[in-house]
Design a protein around this nucleic acid. Structure first.
Lengths: 172, 172
DNA sequence: GTAGCGTAGTTGAGAGCTTGACTATTCCGC
DNA sequence: GCGGAATAGTCAAGCTCTCAACTACGCTAC
C-alpha cells in the first residue's frame, strides 16, 4: 500500500481516520495472508492432482464420514463445511453423479434432505486421506516446532472465537 | 476423519504407513484452516459489499500502486498476486473495462505487456483502502495480543520460507 | 382448516477460474 | 543471420461459485 498519512493535529486525534497498519503489522498481515493462500492452494492442488478430489469435496466427504450413520442434513453439512447452501447443493449433486453421496428425504422434516455417504464414497475418501495427510505433514507440521504448532492452534481458536463462536466448539 | 490405525507390529515401524495427525495436531490444523477460510471470506465479502472491489482485484491494484511508475509486467504482477498468468490476464481485462488499469506494450521486450494503474484506478484504491484496513483491524488485529501478532508473523514467514522462498523476501 | 409466514433446499443465469492450446517474440548456438 | 527452443501473454471450453428467484413443507393463529 502506498503511504497514507493522517493529517489530524497532534492534540486532537481524529477518531474517524483510518487505523492504518504500521510496518510490523503490515509484515505480519502479509506473511499470514500469503502463506495461507499458498498453503491452501498447494494442498488443494496436490490432493486434486493425485486423487481427482478437490479439497472442498474432500471436506464434504470427511464431514459425512464422521457423522452418525454417515449422513447429515444439508444445512448442517453446509455449516460444517463453511459453504453456502447453494454451493453445497451443487457440490452434492456432483458427488451424487460420481456415486459417492446420495440424497434421501429426511423422515423427521419433509422439507429436509439427508446427504448420505455411500460405500464408494467412503472408499474414495479412504484412498485420498493418506495423500492429504502427507501433504499437510510435508507443508505444515514438518515445517513447525511444537511451540509453533501450539501458537497456530491458539491463533486459530482465537480468531475462530471472534469470527464464528459456534464453530470453535465443534473442534475435535 | 474417521480413525485410521497403523497395523504394523511394534517392533517394526512401517515407514510407508500414513503419518496420521494426533488429536492435538488435528485440533491445531482445523482451527487454523477454519479460521483462515472464515477470515479471508469475511474480508472479501466486506470489501466487495462496501466498494464493489473483490479482494483479488484489490491486491492487483495495491501491487500496481506500489510499483515504480505504478506499472508492472504481467508475469511479475501475477507472481506478486499469487495468481496464474491466465487468471491475471482475465482480471486485468476486467479492470481495464472499469478504466482502472490499462495495458501497454513493454518497450524492452516485445512479447511483454505492462499493466498500468490509471488515475481512476488509484482513486478507486484510495477509496477502498480505509474500508479494507478497518476490516483487517476488526477481524484480525483487534482480536490478538501483541505476542499473538508476533507469533502470526513468525508462523507466516516460516511457512512462506518453505512454500515460496522467493516471496518471503518481498515482504515489507 | 386455512392464511400467512418462516425455513430447507434447489435451480438457472451469469461471473470467474482452470487447463491446455495457441500466437508472437526473444534467446541461443551455429 | 537463421532455425529451434524457450518465454510472455491470450483465449476457448468446461467447471465451480454466487446471487436471486423459486418450490415445498412446517408452524402458528385465527
Amino acid at each position: 500500500m502506498t503511504a497514507h498519512v493522517s493529517h489530524a493535529p497532534a492534540g486532537a486525534p481524529d477518531l474517524t481516520a483510518p487505523r492504518w497498519l504500521d510496518a510490523e503489522e503490515q509484515r505480519a498481515w502479509r506473511a499470514w495472508l500469503f502463506s495461507a493462500q499458498l498453503l491452501m492452494d498447494r494442498l488443494d492442488r496436490e490432493l486434486t492432482h493425485a486423487t481427482g478430489i478437490s479439497h472442498a469435496y474432500y471436506e464434504i466427504l470427511v464431514a459425512l464420514s464422521e457423522a452418525p450413520e454417515r449422513m447429515m442434513r444439508m444445512s448442517e453439512l453446509a455449516d460444517r463445511c463453511l459453504s453456502s447452501r447453494s454451493r453445497l447443493s451443487h457440490a452434492v449433486s456432483r458427488l451424487e453423479e460420481r456415486g459417492w453421496v446420495r440424497r434421501q428425504v429426511c423422515p423427521e422434516d419433509g422439507r429436509g434432505q439427508l446427504a448420505v455417504l455411500t460405500e464408494e464414497g467412503f472408499a474414495a475418501l479412504d484412498g485420498a486421506a493418506p495423500v492429504h495427510v502427507e501433504s499437510v505433514r510435508t507443508h505444515l507440521f514438518d515445517q513447525l516446532t511444537p511451540d509453533q504448532v501450539e501458537n497456530m492452534r491458539d491463533l486459530g481458536e482465537t480468531l475462530l472465537g471472534h469470527l464464528d463462536p459456534a464453530t470453535v466448539r465443534t473442534l475435535p
